[in-house]
Design a protein around this nucleic acid. Sequence first.
RNA 1: AGCGGGGUGGGGUAGCCAGGAGAUCCCGACGGGCCCAUAACCCGUAGAUCAGUGGUUCGAAUCCACUCCCCGCUACCA
Length: 711
Amino acid sequence: MKEKIYIGVAWPYANGSLHLGHMAGCYLPADIFARFCRMNGKDVLMVSGSDEHGTPITITAEKENTTPQAIADRYNKEHTENMKQFGISFDLFTRTTTENHKKVVQDLFLTLYKNKYIYRKSVESFYCEKCKRFLPDRYIEGTCPYCGNENARGDQCDECGKILDPQDLQNAKCKICGSSPKIRTSEHLFLALSKFESKLLDWISDKGHWKSSVMKFTKNWLENGLKDKAITRDMEWGIKVPVEGFEDKRIYVWFDAVTGYLSASKEWSQNLGNPDKWEEWWKNKQAKHYYFLAKDNIPFHSLIWPSMLMGYDESLELPYDIPANEYLTLSGEQFSKSRGVAVWVPDILEKFDPDAVRYYLSINMPENKDTNWTWEDFVTKNNNELVGTYGNFVHRTITFTQKNFGEIPKQGILSNFDKEALEKIEAASKEVSDALEKCNFKIGLRSAMNLSQFGNQYFDQNQPWNLIKEDEERCAAVLHICLKIVTALSVLMAPYLPFSSDKIWNMLGHKDSVHIANWDDALSELNVGCPLEKPKPLFEKLSLKDIMAEADPFSNLDLRVAKVVEVKDHPDADRLYILQVDLGDLGKRVLVAGMKPYYSKDELTGKNIVIVTNLKPATIRGVKSDGMLLAAGGGTDTVVLLNPGDAKPGSAVFIEGIPKEPVSVLEFEDFKRIKMTVDEKQQIKYKEKTLHGEKGPIVTDKTVEKGVNVS
RNA sequence: AGCGGGGUGGGGUAGCCAGGAGAUCCCGACGGGCCCAUAACCCGUAGAUCAGUGGUUCGAAUCCACUCCCCGCUACCA
């Protein structure tokens, strides 16, 4: 029987689009690994799906005046499509709102309950009477009892870093509606994680092949002792708790989501008309289970999910490896929807070849530490490595052969150099394969790239363009070797660059897809005599300028909240103030602003305002202004500041859906072209989208007429 | 605060767990070659006391201790 490989990939939460962090974090590595395994004759089952329950989705639904299911439907559809476009080769990408999933989750839950791994316990938690729901810790805000920060969350205070219980907060408020929640007692069901400690310790004892970060994290949790965790919630959106007396409660989303690994396997079997087929992976000691996810998700997969499986059915396979990645950052910042830092997958798929993106994400994968996505580096690596080294070698070889021979020429007498080339192919195939077996994706890709660099060297030194005039037979022989390198590359690159590999494979006269080819076909003989067609270049060069120009000009802006520290009169101007503002971690700055007719010094001091931080500094009447504040009002009659609420100084101001990629210096001309206006709710609109800060929409400081400009 | 990861030529990175000659690769800079190829490719040169300090050792980027600096996680962000 073929070796069974199960690949579970973290379930994306269906409350927003996918961004490149998701791709680099788990979907791309999982896909590369899956494709590689399939080419090596393994029987792969790779599943995932949308995680569709939980509070955030219900809140989005309320905001948009629709149902949670509608939100889940929207993003499930988008995610499914994006995965396909990006070439992520799931055997099944499903969702947590299917009947099958519900059944599997409830069965697992009930079995754990019967096996005494789930028990009842009363807890006190906050209930918001206005929103009519119990509030998750993150949705409660109040004053931190330790440092006095007024914006501490129920789970933790961001200022002092202390971990809190919501009950610790003073003046607790509902983050959604702002009213004061009341404490209510409610009975919940808890998963007895503590009962699994010794079994888990035993289980991880032979996991020496795990990444050190995964192992350390896991061990650390175990050493501190596992805390039992509540796995029910008082809400409506979710899977019903199949225990008497708990009919009104729902199963906590993470319990629900990880169970997807099992339910999706079953669904896949049913779709196949062979409902027990999943057991070949799950009830098979020879099967290896891999889970791909990013670092935030480690304990769920290394501790909680294994515990659930152990408590449910001893015969089920546990994870073999959890090659968790670190994070991809965007110009040094973590991807975050709420802070407006992201490159969205739907956007990127519209603009770029998925293989180009896959290349950059693979060669720059956050395998061992966070890595940075920059547009500049993306363009450089695309142009120099993907296009220059790899694409060019393939293209020059096939073009030259086609032009001069029209078909794949036969092998000649092997020179020493030829032999070296054949050895290189073999070595590269082994190197890539060794690396991929260990989930070392960057090393594998680098090895494949080295082979294409060797191809270029071989081509250069043999000078077929001269040979064709002098020694046609030798020329044919050289090209034959080059084409063998091309063949090998299309196989070795197939896990990474599935679309272009397939094209090359077909150019070389193969009727089928490279994805049903075998890894050993990297070394296969060529179809000598097979006619060649004039090739088109595989990849395109990119221009950083075009990319930047295509982006919305708003992306170039760096808007931030600033707190006015000090206001002075400008010595040589009637209308100007000199403000010193605090940008938190970004330090302090001096701005010159014409606010004297509209605001007194006292009014301004201590106020939170919105400023442009990356505007080219200007000297105004002899004083350098390092930035500009945003205000609403066109003429001289009224000018009012923008009010970001009590957002942190230095925090970002952004528009959802427009990626924030500020240029280092923004020309004033470019800034002037960005038209923002005030709407009837006193919110700020740009292209009908609303300007946000970390505390929600930005509004004007005082009421002004609808439609006035912001500048 | 606790925990985890990281700091390697101008930028980015490999090597570190299993210590050994001039420290890897990509980009960039400089010089040269080639002209088949998407102004792509190839060759060569310069550039790093491997964050710092101390230790173990015949020998340390690698092991140990301490210090500094970045980043992340802390149980619903991949």
